[in-house]
Deep mutational scan, measured.
Amino acid sequence: IEKFKLLAEKVEEIVAKNARAEIDYSDAPDEFRDPLMDTLMTDPVRLPSGTVMDRSIILRHLLNSPTDPFNRQMLTESMLEPVPELKEQIQAWMREKQSSDH
């Protein structure tokens, strides 16, 4: 029984630690959010139409349809242009958020 109590305490400790580690990014500025999924972008790319999306989301879309989801023009992965300035701004915002939450 004592071992179970210790195990339960350890589990509670881990759960509390994980809860502290989770950071809420739901208040991200609109320009940091993917327009299709409304999630925080981690690897922004510009489509030929000028729309900026997260790379993982547009690549997932391209698996089903080789088109720009906003104007239905033909689109391939090679046409995606990285946006390193925005990526750095997002990373800086995330770092600031992490340091203010801890």
Score class of each variant (00 low, 15 high):
Glu81Gly: 06
Asp101His: 06
Glu96Lys: 13
Ile14Asn: 10
Met94Thr: 14
Val11Glu: 12
Ser99Asn: 10
Met79Val: 04
Met79Leu: 07
Ile90Met: 00
Asn18Thr: 08
Ala16Thr: 11
Pro69Thr: 00
Ser49Ala: 15
Glu13Ala: 13
Val52Ile: 12
Asp24Tyr: 12
Thr67Ser: 06
Asp30Tyr: 06
Leu75Val: 03
Ala92Thr: 11
Ser49Tyr: 15
Pro84Leu: 13
Asp34Glu: 02
Met53Thr: 15
Ile57Leu: 04
Lys17Glu: 13
Trp93Gly: 02
Glu85Ala: 07
Leu40Arg: 02
Pro29Ser: 04
Ser56Pro: 08
Asp54Tyr: 00
Phe4Val: 08
Pro66Thr: 05
Pro82Leu: 03
Asp68Gly: 00
Glu9Lys: 08
Leu75Gln: 01
Val83Leu: 14
Asp24Ala: 07
Gln73Lys: 08
Ile14Val: 10
Pro29Thr: 03
Val83Met: 08
Ser78Ile: 05
Lys5Arg: 07
Met94Ile: 13
Ile57Thr: 15
Met94Val: 14
Tyr25Asp: 15
Ile57Ser: 14
Asp101Val: 07
Glu22Gly: 05
Leu86Val: 05
Asp43Glu: 13
Leu6Phe: 12
Ser49Cys: 04
Glu88Gly: 15
Glu22Asp: 08
Asp68Glu: 02
Ile90Leu: 06
Pro82Arg: 05
Lys87Gln: 15
Lys10Thr: 11
Ile23Lys: 14
Met74Lys: 12
Pro82Ala: 12
Asp30Asn: 06
Lys3Glu: 06
Gln73Pro: 00
Thr76Ser: 09
Ser26Gly: 13
Ser100Gly: 13
Ile14Phe: 12
Ile14Ser: 10
Arg33Thr: 04
Glu2Asp: 15
Gln89His: 07
Leu47Arg: 01
Asp43His: 05
Pro84Ala: 11
Thr39Ile: 07
Leu6Arg: 15
Gln89Arg: 13
Ala21Pro: 12
Ser78Arg: 10
His61Leu: 00
Leu7Pro: 07
Glu88Gln: 09
His102Leu: 10
Asp27Ala: 05
Val15Gly: 09
Glu77Ala: 05
Ser49Pro: 03
Lys3Arg: 06
Pro35Ala: 02
Ile23Arg: 09
Arg55Pro: 00
Trp93Leu: 04
Lys87Arg: 08
Pro48Arg: 03
Lys10Ile: 05
Leu80Met: 04
Phe70Cys: 00
Gln91Leu: 10
Glu12Asp: 14
Arg33Lys: 12
Pro84Ser: 13
Asp38Val: 15
Met37Thr: 06
Leu6Val: 09
Ser65Ala: 04
Asn64His: 06
Leu40Pro: 04
Ser26Arg: 07
Leu6Ile: 10
Asp101Gly: 09
Leu36Pro: 00
Val52Gly: 01
